[in-house]
Amino acid sequence: MKEFMDTNLNKNNMSETNLSAAKVRFDNFSVSFLPDKPGGAIVEALSGINLSVGDKKILSVIGPSRSGKTSLLRSVNRLNDLHPNFVPGGDILIDGAPVYASSNIDITALRRKAGMVFARPVILPLSIYENIAYGPRLAGNNSKPSLDELVESALKDAYVWEEVKDRLQSPAASLSGGQRQRLCIARVLSMRPDIIMLDEPTSALDPVSTAKIEETLIALKSKYCIILVTNNVKQAARVGDKTAFFLMGRLIEHDDTSKIFTTPRDERTENYITGRFG
């Protein structure tokens, strides 16, 4: 039964991949973490993931904790490389180019192309302005007019410009939680990425800030490919064009959000979205 489901699923994905050129494609991708100490167990965080994300679309990724959602995102920009025990399998293709197979990939360029927003808004110990200018400066942009313009447009696109425009030089640590998270989004936008990945970006925020972030994401959809990992099923339904459900390192189901939430094919998906477990 389960095998049947998996093959069914793969077929489904294949056909989809062939139909449209995907922005990000997970190709039989898997992640394992080697044990810290000899004798420990290998953690299979993700196994055999086939999944495509289209451009100018939002993919919501849902699933109970430890199902591999964070590992998925952190593999796209190779942030998992920071863990010495990380072992990838298969590959991820961005615009058709492999992220892991090619030996001389420029990882810093990859990370600028696929920006990431973390669950806890991490503020760099710099001013608001310098937080936003950080990425462009690293990329070699040091011209003040160009940075000014980038900072302003990024803050505007992230809907925080009005709140911070008069205190760009004050420490970013003075912002509230919701403002910080939108600053983090702006920080990613200033790098002019293709892909924006957000890992439970509203899990530490109040409902008002959450609504603002969701609004921001929907507005950004017209320009970017967005992958939103969320622990909030309703949020997935509100903003995602497509939704993928992960469980214990496997992709259980992936489809149009409306389908997933009205007629899920898998019982486990149904159980999860109706809150019967997880």
């Binding site: 600028r112 973390f118 760099l124 950080y134």
Partner: peptide
Amino acid sequence: YELREASYSLGATRWQ
């Protein structure tokens, strides 16, 4: 560690 991750995710090298 979070600060380092944020910096790396914005395209910084180790030394940067």
